[in-house]
Structure formats: structure tokens, C-alpha cells
Design a protein around this nucleic acid. Structure first.
Lengths: 334, 334
DNA sequence: TTGTACGCGTTATCAC
DNA sequence: GTGATAACGCGTACAA
């Protein structure tokens, strides 16, 4: 059976197609009685508008695109959750496009895929190390927003969180509870996230009147310290570990246990992100929660602004939140 | 600047629009030289086909829809990953639709959203307890595939994994390593997953010649045992815990530690799913890996079959895989 | 091998 | 307030 169109409704109602269109889209200049009749008939006939036809005519798709790394990380899912929720709230569809790593895939996406994408705007989610070619999107007419544009400098509006201030607050929390030999464990400092969190660490030391000791800094390659590196760090006798990623903190916790250190009695530990694992660790990990869902929602709002008003590049910052659990040793004395 | 269309190319190439269309879509009946010239001009002009116009004309969208619960779980993300990857491989777009819980939202989706969705087929991802109204999709002309249609009986093709056989294999592994008092910890048996895994547990006992002891069965409500329930179970002096979900196994591990039991020496533990957390637990959890990505990919293939050949309802089973780590106590003696 | 004519379903423009 | 007409960009009969 063929699709029901506004032409069918028009015939049935004895009016013209444009009138049906106006009635169904809530235009004011249509008779109240006519509108009701048309709406009733539309419902009776089981009319459903054709998205393609509407898009062809209006140039809008009522759809947002999300460009994601083809890479598993709970944080990305969390961001997508925020985006999906906010999009749905605004009656927009969400199209998800995995981006394979490599410059070639990026180039192909920008030149081949992007121009034909039935999408009104694009949200970019890119891990550190994504080559810059994707930045060509900025020279496109496609409205776009980047999430966590750390070190990319894409010349596009972006959403970020308070990496530096958030980590500073967490380290300061250790300082206030008497820790003096707090080590920093993070990634290489050419990683923009590691860099910002390291500066937050320095901020906290400065504020606490604690001199910076380079021996207490561990910057493993690939964000992944080896067992040896951790052992060596523990040899410097720290009483606190400020770890720039939860995942690294988990390794550290296990290494501490293995070496016979007690957490938090001997060594306090804090992480960053609030991974789902942080809660079930022993002891549960104190960490800085990234507001991923809110960041996703904010990206949607910015994108809509950009689509409707053609706003110039800007950015939006969502605050992180210190989540105090047991690993920092301050649960009992508060 | 206005969009470049095939009309522009036609004018530039001195041919008619249909010729351009045929050349660009690889129809055989077009002169080799003409084709080349048209392709070159298309590239020069930066031509990009209009997805809406094509869809309007052909009735196809080259897009798959994914209906997901508005609910955070790593497994759903994993499935989406598999779907996204396979869709991309086939040149299909992926549209993600969150489904809020409740019969009303389901009804609305089926009657309002679905009919206008610019999608060629739909993959359904529904947690236990999703009311049956969504099953109305079966009476629709929309090709659909369900993932893990446990207990829904939706009369639609579905993809599943070997819950019963997989759990049986894992429990049998414990039996073979000398465990005799193996407890089952799962959800209520009206939960179809709990039911199947429980039967796998019984299968293994039977095969191992171990009589079933009801005291060794813990069926907490909501898949979430209380501390008291676990304590009581440990009072029955089990030497193994067969847990139907990793998440519950994590609670159990922590409870065991708190009660002073050693894992795996005193009590061996196995879980189900292979959550990302399983690897970082102490000790790392032996578990049954769900092939989520492959299930997603399989769903895409089934859906494509259904779209192209209108296949009748069928189903496809992907095997689980036993992942042996330390918590089952058989690493050292193998 | 190529061109002519037309339709897909909707909305914008303008006239009445 | 409503109708006639056209246009969005593309693909497909059919004829040449």
C-alpha cells in the first residue's frame, strides 16, 4: 500500500495541499475549523510526513551528527549519553559516525562523507593525537562544536571542563589533610590534559607552601606506567599520589598493595575522571569527576545556537567536581 | 553560494542530467569518455549529492536506526560499537534513538517517531523489563532485529549469545578443579538471563555428579545482593561462587575480603559478561565473555538481509568465551 | 549510448 | 484564510 501524503489528505478534506501543510505545521493563518478537520483526517489516514521530502524542500534535517573515535572508553559513552538526551529533548535526531584513526580516514571524512551528510551540525569528539586534518571542518559551512579541544586549536567553538582548577582542588585537599610529600603521576606533558593537571598540581603545592620536588614526578609514556616506574616512585617515600587519570590510579593502587603499603594510611591516592571502576576499587578512589554528560548537553546547545544564529567561535566551561571516597584518607576526620 | 547539482555538471559537460546521474552512479550504459569527463567536472565543481533528494526518489536512506535504552551500561556501548563498525564497513549511516522507559514512551515511539524515521531498518536493544508495547514494531513494515530478546517474545529476528552453555562451561571449570560446594548467585528467576544461567549451573552440577543444594542458591532482588545476604551465604561454607553477573561478583569479592576469606584459596569466584572492571579487580575475575561486538555486527548483517530479501523471522547465536583469570584458582595448575 | 519527460512529498511565493 | 504554481535535487521510464 502506498504512502499517505498531504495530497491524499487534501483530496479527502476538499482543500489544497498548501492548506494541509499549513494546518499540520501550526501556521496561524488557517481557519480553526479547517485545521481541526485536517488534523482529524490526517490521523484517520495514518499520515506520516516524509523526512526526505521535507529536508529537500527546507534544507534542514533536524539531525545532529556526532563524530566519535572508533575507540572504547566509558567517557565517550557518557558524553554521547548527554548529547543523545539533550538532542531528544529538542526533538532532534542523532547520527553517530565512527572516525577511524589516521590522517587518510580524516581526509576522506572531510572531503567525501561530510558534504553529503544529512545533518544540520556536527559535534566532534576527538582523542589526543588526532591529526590536524580534521580541522578542515572549520573551513566548511557545516556548523560544528568540539568537545575537549585540548591542544587541537581547531578554530571551532568548544566545550571543556576545569582540568587545572579541578586537579588543584583535589591536591589541595590532600595538602589540607597533612600530606607533604605528594607525588604527581601523569602522562607526558605534551599531552595537553596531563599538562593542565600538572599545573593544577603545582598550583596546589604553591598554595600549600610546599616546594616542588622533581623526584616526586612520574611521567610515563602512553599514560601507562610500568611496574618498575611505580616501584621506583614508591622508593622516594611519598605520602600521597596525585594521579592524573583514574586508570593509572588503579594500577598504582594495585602496586601499592603488592608492595605492602596501606592506602590511605601510608599513602593517600587521588585520581581524575571518576571512572565507574573508582567506586568499586578497594579502597574506593577519591577522584575528580568529569561532567561528561553536561559537556555533551552543552555542546548540543552551543551547536543549536550556531545553527540558528551563526554564532562566532566561543567556548564553554563546565566545572569538575571533587568526589571524596576512602583512598584519600579524609573520610573519617570530617 | 548555491549547491552544485547534477544540472550544473550537465550544463558544464554539455550533456543531459540523466547522463550525469548514470555516469556518477556507475551505470554500464554510458560512454567511457563521457563518464570520465563527467567525473572530472563533478570533482572540479565540488559536487556532493543531496541525500534528501536521493532518498525522496529512491525510498532508501542508507541509514540504520538503533533504539537504545536511556541507561548507562558498558555492554550497550560495546554492542553499539559493533553495530557502528559493521554499518560503516557497509557504507551505512547509524542513527541512535534513546528510548525512555515506560509504556507511554514506547507507544509514542512506535506511533509518532517511527513512521517518519529516515531509516531503512531498526535494531532494538532493550533491557529486561521493557514492556511489551514496543513489540508493535513487528506489525510494522519496518525491518527490525532485536538483540538479546530474552523473554520478550517479540516475534522478530534476534541475536543472542550462549548464556546457558557459557555458564555451564564456567561452572564445570570450577568442578574440574575440585570445587564441590559451589553456590549460585544471580537475579530472580523471572529474569530470563538469570534463568538461563541458573540452568547452565544446574547442567554443570549434574555433569559433575554434584547434587543440587538449595541452600547454596542466592537469588537477590534487582540483581543486587545485600551485605546480609552475602554474609548468610558465606555461612553455608561454599568453596566456589558462580555469579551470574560481574557486577554482583565484584560485590561478592569485596564481601569475601571483608569477611576474611581468601580468593581463590578459600573460595573461587566466577562471573559473567567480562566487564572492563573484571580485569583490574583483585584478584582479576574469571568470567564468561559476552561477544557484544560480534552480536552487534551480526544484527547489522541480519537486518541487511531482511531489508534486501525480506527474510522471515530467524535468529542467530554467537558463542560466549570463558576467560580464565586468577579468581577461579586454576591459573597456577594448568 | 543519450535525451525527454516526469514524479517523489513537501513547503515557499504570490495572488486572490 | 485559501488556492494555484513552482521549486527543492535526483532517478527512472521510455523514446530516440
Amino acid at each position: 500500500m502506498p504512502r499517505v501524503t498531504i495530497a491524499d489528505i487534501a483530496k479527502e478534506a476538499g482543500v489544497s495541499k498548501p492548506t494541509v501543510s499549513r494546518a499540520l505545521n501550526g501556521h496561524p493563518d488557517v481557519g480553526a475549523e479547517t485545521r481541526e478537520r485536517i488534523q482529524r483526517i490526517a490521523a484517520d489516514l495514518g499520515y506520516a510526513p516524509s523526512a526526505s521530502a521535507r529536508s529537500l524542500r527546507t534544507g534542514r534535517h533536524d539531525t545532529l551528527g556526532l563524530l566519535m573515535p572508533l575507540q572504547q572508553w566509558w567517557g565517550y559513552s557518557d558524553i554521547q549519553y548527554g548529547i543523545a538526551e539533550e538532542s531528544a529533548r529538542r526533538g532532534l535526531h542523532l547520527m553517530v559516525h565512527p572516525l577511524r584513526p589516521g590522517e587518510r580516514a580524516e581526509r576522506e571524512f572531510v572531503t567525501q562523507t561530510l558534504p553529503t551528510l544529512p545533518v544540520d551540525g556536527l559535534i566532534l569528539l576527538m582523542p589526543e593525537g588526532t591529526p590536524r586534518h580534521i580541522g578542515a571542518i572549520a573551513h566548511t559551512s557545516m556548523p560544528s562544536v568540539v568537545i575537549d579541544d585540548r591542544g587541537h586549536r581547531l578554530d571551532l567553538p568548544y566545550v571543556e571542563s576545569t582540568n587545572r582548577a579541578g586537579f588543584r582542588e583535589a591536591v589541595l585537599h590532600l595538602v589540607r589533610h597533612g600530606r607533604r610529600r605528594i607525588a604527581f603521576v601523569g602522562g607526558q606533558l605534551n599531552d595537553a590534559f596531563a599538562q593542565e593537571r600538572f599545573e593544577g598540581y603545582l598550583d596546589a603545592l604553591r598554595e600549600g607552601g610546599i616546594p616542588y620536588d622533581p623526584d616526586l614526578t612520574l611521567l610515563p609514556a602512553d599514560r601507562e606506567p610500568t611496574a618498575d616506574e611505580i616501584t621506583e616512585l614508591l622508593g622516594t617515600d611519598p605520602d600521597g599520589l596525585a594521579v592524573a587519570w583514574d586508570e593509572i590510579a588503579f594500577s598504582a593502587l594495585n602496586a601499592l598493595h603488592a608492595a605492602g603499603h596501606r592506602v590511605p594510611d601510608d599513602v593517600a591516592v587521588i585520581g581524575f575522571d571518576d571512572s565507574p571502576i573508582a567506586r568499586v576499587m578497594q579502597p574506593p578512589l577519591t577522584t575528580v569527576r568529569q561532567p561528561f554528560r553536561q559537556m555533551g548537553a552543552a555542546a548540543v546547545r552551543m551547536l543549536l545556537d550556531s545553527i540558528e544564529h551563526g554564532r562566532p567561535p566561543a567556548h564553554f566551561t563546565v566545572p569538575t567536581e571533587l568526589v571524596i571516597r576512602d583512598s584519600c584518607g579524609s573520610h573519617e576526620d570530617q
